[in-house]
Amino acid sequence: MATSTSNVITLTGSTNLVAEFFHYGLNSILYQRGLYPPESFIHTQQWGLTMLVTCNKELQRFFDEIISQVKTWLMDMSIEKLVVVIKEVATNTVVERWQFDIDSDKSVTKDTKREVSNKQIQDDIRSVIRQITASVTFLPLLDKPCCFDVLVYTDKGLEVPTTWGETGPHFIYNPEEVRLKSFTTSIHKVSAAVAFKKSD
């Protein structure tokens, strides 16, 4: 149908796309949830959306490290989930948990090429990012100082790099969960969800 926008995707291409999504998605979460001052973010254009990306050097370095590591795991398909937890600094309780489930097609090898609609993928990614932006309307206000952490669920057999360490799942006590949209590159399928503390 949409032959003009159809494209061929490889494992590397899919990995780059997903990693890029994480980069912008994580930045969007930090900005939208007000974890860092809004003046420390700059506007960038991507996928036809204006997004805010941090210009804090330390934070950039942190993201670079994480994303590059996640990329290698996406390549060998050992990553299953990427979770962003937001914790209150004072009490260390988890107040919000953004979970990105990654479903990888394990039959894909380095040489596999798949026909996909580039437009479709970008549309889907856009809608996920838009949902993250819109989520501030229902998520509770983080009025106490908060910090965040990135957790990665990997295969059991994976050898943990020295710069990473095992940790707990950081679940929320008494949570409410909202599923967000998902997108697929036909190699990796990423579905997002956000869990937050029930406010009553």
Binding site: L35, Y36, P37, N56, E58, L59, F62, E65, I66, Q69, E80, K81, V89, P145, C147, F148, D149, V150, L151, V152, Y153, T154, D155, K156, L158, V160, T163, W164, G165, E166, T167, G168, P169
Partner: peptide, 13 residues
Amino acid sequence: NKIISFNQKPPPA
């Protein structure tokens, strides 16, 4: 799964 996180923590606000 193994749940892992980056040892270095993000800079605080």
